[in-house]
Design a protein around this nucleic acid. Structure first.
Lengths: 231, 231
DNA sequence: AGCTTAACGCTACACTCGTCGCACTAGCGC
DNA sequence: GCGCTAGTGCGACGAGTGTAGCGTTAAGCT
């Protein structure tokens, strides 16, 4: 009961149909899709729609396996077999959302880019229902949800490194290799911190102010590898 | 089932004995402590010790009401009556930890203070068992735990504002009223973000680097009220 | 010491959660 | 069309969760 996903093998049921682009693991290629035909696909669509509906009505608190199954018109056992737990449902919903084609903002200035990025983050944490908040809540119970959350943010940050490259090309950053990851972390973390940990009301000026602070810090050489903190 | 603490009145059972210093609310004063005598206090001590023990052994996942009751040698119903849910237990444990006598660091420089503060935060999120992580997990399920978490961090940040005041007195900050809260947020948020959301391994240099970045940003006037973002 | 009653122990109950075995439906290949 | 079987529906079960009623214990007060 302490480790809900201790068994490694039978957990790829939903991953088989959802995650095909990044199927770099071995067993995924050996068993790509046994029977992806009409009924299976239809049930998956019904269940994912039910997850979205439940999330919209009851929030991430009211997202229960039985509620999803009832709303989808599917038996509980089917949902348990294919998605295992709430984290698996959320992972599949997010993967199915197809946000791989997300692009970081490009406003012409580093400060503008970071501000736009922060506004996106603030909205993703504020909008109802918030998949980001639901995934965070689930990540404390489901290891798969935790990995999905880490992967999601990791991909986003990797994509956002181009913002720093572009800024360096425009000469907005001081000479020396700036650590893009630390700059992005400093710029975006306050928004997340303010909304999730402090649970304060969203401040419409915070995205810009956090971005400005990060730009100023980088102008001071806080994120350059030639600074003092690196051996 | 969707709202475990919809009833407002009977939720102050544990608050009666735990929260006496900040009893600014009305009903707390009307019924301060009906019978705080030997048995009640002893059972509370046993239960809170059991919570700490369960947390240390099984983590915040394995923290269940029945496990706590069994370990404390107390009946389940008693734990349910006095603490209502897991969030109530955590709230009481944290209140009982007596962290009112916590003092922000004083190293002689703003950067040193913020670095020391960040190292404390990093340790509190890294140490096993981490009450901070457990409280975060519980805050997604229990409204009382969420409020306790907000209150805890709010108090900490309020106490830390003295760091900014001292730095201003030493002339480390630019002229103009600096927003202490935003400075602290910018300094501390990256550590939390890095460990919780990105779930990355603790970086021993991150506390110092985040503190340095915040100091540089404040030197650039990012947190002064006379800057552009304030009407 | 004796009385009052808040608080605890105990039993029983209803309910949810997650799993298992079996029957059956419907893709898929022939 | 016709088998084969992956996938689903169904019912039942065990374990865990939370509540209610009632008897018992012991704290607080005179």
């Amino acid at each position: 009961m302490t480790d809900p996903e201790g068994t490694p093998a039978p957990a790829d049921v939903s991953a088989a149909s959802a995650r095909d682009a990044s199927g770099a693991t071995g067993p995924a290629a050996a068993k790509p899709d046994r029977r992806p035909g009409g009924r299976t696909a239809r049930i998956r669509a019904q269940v994912l729609a039910a997850v979205r509906g439940e999330l919209a009505e009851n929030g991430h608190e009211g997202l229960t396996m039985e509620g999803v199954a009832t709303r989808a018109g599917v038996h509980r056992a089917t949902v348990y077999r294919r998605w295992r737990d709430v984290g698996g449902l959320l992972v599949d919903v997010i993967d199915a959302a197809g946000e791989i084609d997300w692009q970081p903002p490009d406003t012409g200035s580093l400060r503008g880019d970071l501000t736009a990025l922060n506004e996106e983050i603030q909205e993703s944490l504020t909008v109802q229902p918030s998949f980001a908040v639901a995934l965070m809540a689930a990540s404390f119970h489901s290891e798969r949800a935790a990995r999905a959350q880490t992967r999601l943010w990791e991909d986003r940050y990797a994509q956002c490194e181009i913002l720093v490259d572009r800024a360096a090309g425009r000469g907005e950053l001081p000479p020396g290799q700036t650590d893009a990851r630390r700059l992005l972390l400093a710029a975006t973390a306050p928004v997340y911190h303010h909304l999730v940990l402090l649970r304060a009301a969203p401040d419409p000026r915070l995205p810009e102010q956090a971005a400005t602070a990060a730009v100023l810090a980088s102008a001071g050489g806080a994120f350059t590898a030639s600074a003092e903190g690196s051996p």
